[in-house]
Nucleic acid binder design. Structure first.
Lengths: 340, 340
DNA sequence: CTGAAAGCGCTAACAC
DNA sequence: GTGTTAGCGCTTTCAG
């Protein structure tokens, strides 16, 4: 090798020499293992400090078989939904001194295979697979050699653990809140019908309405894109339909904001005439909306935290959970549903 | 160690045995080094394939002194601005088979120190420091043992390389575009005065106006928060000022959107009466705005790509660049400045 | 209580 | 052409 004794790389041997002990002793002193005279331990610690010793984790990992690293593989590119998830995961992992190796496969299967190989070669202790495609994705399989947790996206195998947000219960909370604030004629403006999120939110809305003895204005959800433009168009349709309505549950904050704008510009007062609830608690939308939006927060940071925690358990050989774990959403109240 | 021969961990020794050769030969065959009979090479490759051999990168790194890993340390938490940057960095790194270890220090100096220690212990080949605080941040120092590049945030030492977006030139492009589309009475609605971004954008606007022989409507930029609400308020102020104006350069898309809403609701037509340009090309804002916003894209993915590329050069011992490298912004035209 | 020695998985000299 | 050996930096028996 060209680089012998590269700049400043202090090893246990160096510390040992400086402290006048053997490398084995240094190891014991630094890791608090074995029986050492406390004076020796102090001397070693002092030497280590003085030389600026930083243990080489690679060497340790080679020996222990653990890298204290988890791979995070995002199937689509890192986006708005992945960020809080990463933050939550880091919280859970950081406490266990684990690090995150980040890979974006961008929906490309070839890339995904590549990254999986890389992560295995790097001997990560476990993998979090994430990605927004809230529709089901193929499992890595049961004989994948290390623990895997799916976060925010669902594996097609129930042997795997998928940690998911709770669209359905979230939608129920939204509708219940509209009902509790006195709205009885509720419409539902949603996203593209093929998305799992759309379907789950519609189902939750239906459940809550049924429980309240109500039914959806127009009988059906209105489907469109996840955009403000669609929200505005939906507002037009509602106003033109001739149906009376005093509440709208929107499947995203973008849609909700569009609906709020559409209604206001059509002369309908929010929240006085109509209450609106969105989903996402995406602050730039929810807070900038006129009025600011009451919305369902899907609790993605918590989701990331839980996914990481479950992965850690599996890595440590504890009962590996499986199936689907749903993380409860919560309601954030703002002006769009205020009464009085 | 508890776990001897953990599940499925195939080593060169296993491959060697299976192929009836020595470990050294396996290494040569797999890495295309040395002189081997091609038949032997084939046999080894076949065995490796069959056993599902995946080389342990840790062992290789321990030997070579390189981990093919870079640490990415975000000073504030990962946000909207960090995402494209990460994507760009990954593009550049992935090509070189490097992986990214992600650490969020969240603006906490203790955490930052901790993560730096971790990254050093993991023997990363280099570090990208990023974070949105576009004001200057303290350098890690010249005797930091591995290469460091600052991306999106500026080091206080000119010995370091800071890769930054180009607020000033971007602002010039914005104002020039307004001028080229026939606007001569241009106002500037900006963010908080203490932010570097605010100052740089104002400076660029002033330069471009001076070059066109124009001066700012109201003489001064209007300062407020980075929000739509501020944009709406600024629109009111402009309309009430009695000054004539036909162009507004806004220092963010959020502000620009607020201005567009404020003007429209005040009976001013955009783009017919007034052209608007924003900054960020933040699609959920720029495209949802009515009308959609012409805006300056700060090219953050490219910024990430460049930062990673420069880091790779430094790691490979090439001329380590220093000082400030500005990544050119570009203009994205949408309806808010359309003419005819 | 401390030192010596072996070995994690791999690669690079140097023999043969 | 291929095998053997040594060693990357660390931890962990096992002697002493």
């Amino acid at each position: 090798m060209a680089q012998r004794k590269a700049r400043g790389v202090v090893t246990v041997a160096d510390v040992a020499e400086h402290a006048g002990v053997s490398p084995g002793t240094v190891s014991k002193a630094l890791n608090g293992r074995g029986q050492l005279k406390s004076e020796t331990r102090q001397r070693v610690l002092a030497s280590a400090e003085k030389l600026g010793f930083a243990p080489n984790l690679l060497a340790r990992s080679l020996l222990s078989g653990r890298t204290y690293t988890v791979g995070v593989l995002t199937t689509d590119s890192v986006g708005r939904f992945t960020i809080p998830l990463l933050t939550g995961a880091e919280d859970a992992l950081g406490a266990g001194q684990m690090s995150m190796l980040l890979c974006e496969s961008r929906g490309d299967a070839i890339r995904e295979q590549h990254y999986l190989r890389v992560l295995m070669a790097r001997r990560v202790d476990g993998i979090i697979i994430t990605g927004r495609s809230s529709n089901v994705r193929p499992s890595l399989g049961q004989d994948f050699p290390i623990p895997v947790v799916y976060a925010l996206c669902q594996s097609d195998s129930m042997e795997d653990l998928s940690v998911l947000h709770d669209d359905e219960k979230g939608a129920e909370m939204a509708v219940n809140h509209l009902v509790e604030t006195g709205r009885s004629r509720i419409a539902h403006v949603s996203g593209p019908p093929r998305h799992a999120a759309t379907q789950n939110r519609s189902r939750g809305a239906a459940t809550a309405l049924a429980a309240a003895g109500l039914s959806l204005v127009l009988g059906e959800p209105l489907h469109g894109e996840w955009s403000e433009a669609w929200g505005r168009e939906a507002a037009q349709r509602l106003m033109r339909s001739g149906e009376r309505f005093n509440g709208v549950f929107c499947a995203s904050d973008q849609i909700a904001r569009g609906v709020a704008d559409g209604l206001r510009e059509g002369g309908v007062a929010v929240p006085e005439d109509v209450g609106i609830v969105g989903v996402d608690n995406w602050l730039p939308m929810a807070e900038a909306s006129r009025p600011p939006l009451t919305t369902i927060d899907l609790n993605l940071a918590e989701l990331g935290h839980i996914a990481a925690t479950r992965l850690l358990s599996a890595i440590e050989g504890k009962d590996a959970a499986s199936g689907i774990e749903r993380v409860p959403a919560f309601l954030v109240k703002r002006r769009s549903t205020e009464i009085g």
